[in-house]
Every structure is written in C-alpha cells, then in structure tokens.
Amino acid sequence: MTEPAEATTPSGRRRWTGGYDPPRTRRELVDSALHLFEQEGFDRTSLQQIVSRANLTKGAFYHHFESKEDLLWQIQNEYLDTQLEAAAAIVEEHPDTVDQLRELIRLSLAGVSSYRAHVAIFYQERRHLTGDRLAAVAAKRDELEAIFRAAVQRGLDEGTFRPGLSGRIITFGILGMCSLAFQWFNPDGTLKIEEVADQFCTLVLDGLLA
C-alpha cells in the first residue's frame, strides 16, 4: 500500500495529499515531543513548540491528545507496553532461569538503545504525571520489575544463584544498571548495544551463579 504523499499548506503546515492520515499525524506529534522533552524538558516545552516542529496545528494535536501531560503519558505507555510484551514472551520462551534472566537483561539494554528518548523521559520527566496517569505508569513499572524479580527469586529458591542474597536488592541493581545506560551509551561508539549486553550479563551472572 502506497503511503499518502506529503505536502504543505501556504502557511507551512503539513498536509497529506492522499488524505488525512491519523496514525502518521499522531506519530509526528509523538516524535516531536520525544525530541523536545528529551532536549528541553517537559516544563520548558510548549504545546506550540511541539506542533510547530511537527508542522501541524493545535487542532491536530487536540484531535489525538487531551493535553501535554496526556502526550507524556502516551510516550511512557509506548515504551512500557513494548517492554512488558517482550518480557512476557521471554518468560514463556525461556523456562531456564539463567537463560531467562540473561534475555531480560538483553531486553532492558535493547530498550535503552531503541527507545533512548523514551527511557530518558521516563526517568527525568515522569514526575510531571498526576492522578490516574501516574498510577497507571507506576503499575506498569511495578509489573515489569516483578517479572525481573520473579526470575531472580526463582534462581535463589532453586539454588541456581548464590544463597544469602536479597532478590529485591539484586533486582534493583540489575534494573538500575541497565536503565541508566541511557546516560552514557553512545550508539555511534565502538561498542554495539549487544556487546554491552554481553558484558552486563557476564558481570551479573558470574556474580550470581552458585
């Protein structure tokens, strides 16, 4: 299927010559916000900046989102939903405890690479969420953490991992180590994210295995 061609109105606003394309318009707004929220911060980014960078109008924005906070919430969901779906698949496909934890670590680091702006915004800007939106994001974050913790705890319970360790501390350590890689990982650097994941897996599992 051929995508609608892109054109602009005399005012410079975007217009799809093949007809209005809601998914593409929504994507343009999300991508604009991702760039601006990461570079400027949520507070310092105006709605006008978001629509101007996307070459769209405020009317287009309000067709898809209730507010700037709603857009921030949707960005958080986009990242967390992808991670939760992939983590659930790993649990299903890798019954071995060590393999499961290894793949979960790889998933977390792959997310840092593929969703770098999402991850940065998640840690730096989620404080701007309120009410039900904040609760929903916190619930998904807790659900993802629980998947990692279950894998760690199973390894402790079955004796695969060294005794006397705290599953809670191990889980927080793994998640913190992986997620904060967004602060220093350079996708144009000498190491690919897969190589970083290999080293993280060696570091974590060599320390855990009984």
Score class of each variant (00 low, 15 high):
4 P>C: 00
109 L>V: 00
204 V>E: 03
103 E>I: 04
157 D>V: 03
189 G>Y: 09
22 P>L: 13
142 D>P: 00
121 I>A: 00
7 A>G: 12
120 A>L: 08
147 I>E: 01
7 A>V: 02
118 H>G: 03
187 P>I: 14
69 E>W: 05
96 D>H: 14
56 L>T: 01
69 E>P: 00
183 Q>M: 13
207 G>E: 02
168 R>C: 10
26 R>W: 09
121 I>G: 08
104 L>C: 13
27 R>N: 10
180 L>E: 10
194 E>N: 07
66 E>K: 15
157 D>A: 11
173 G>L: 06
126 R>W: 05
142 D>L: 12
138 A>S: 15
54 A>K: 01
126 R>I: 06
76 Q>T: 03
6 E>F: 05
158 E>I: 05
6 E>Y: 06
129 L>C: 11
58 K>L: 05
145 E>A: 14
96 D>T: 04
139 A>M: 08
177 M>N: 05
65 F>L: 04
202 T>M: 12
47 L>G: 01
205 L>A: 11
168 R>P: 08
103 E>S: 13
114 S>M: 11
131 G>I: 02
88 A>K: 13
181 A>N: 00
114 S>E: 13
14 R>L: 15
74 Q>S: 07
163 P>N: 09
19 G>L: 02
67 S>Q: 06
2 T>V: 09
18 G>T: 04
136 A>G: 12
153 Q>V: 09
34 L>W: 02
158 E>M: 03
3 E>D: 10
75 I>W: 01
41 G>Y: 01
177 M>D: 02
8 T>H: 12
65 F>G: 00
153 Q>K: 10
170 I>P: 15
76 Q>S: 14
52 S>I: 02
52 S>C: 03
192 K>W: 12
191 L>H: 11
67 S>Y: 03
207 G>S: 03
166 S>C: 07
34 L>F: 03
16 W>S: 04
62 Y>I: 07
163 P>S: 12
200 F>S: 09
143 E>G: 07
120 A>R: 12
168 R>V: 15
184 W>S: 13
121 I>H: 01
59 G>L: 11
172 F>N: 13
185 F>G: 00
140 K>C: 06
209 L>C: 10
120 A>Q: 07
168 R>H: 15
111 G>R: 00
43 D>R: 08
209 L>M: 10
78 E>S: 14
48 Q>G: 03
28 E>F: 11
159 G>Q: 05
45 T>K: 00
12 G>Q: 04
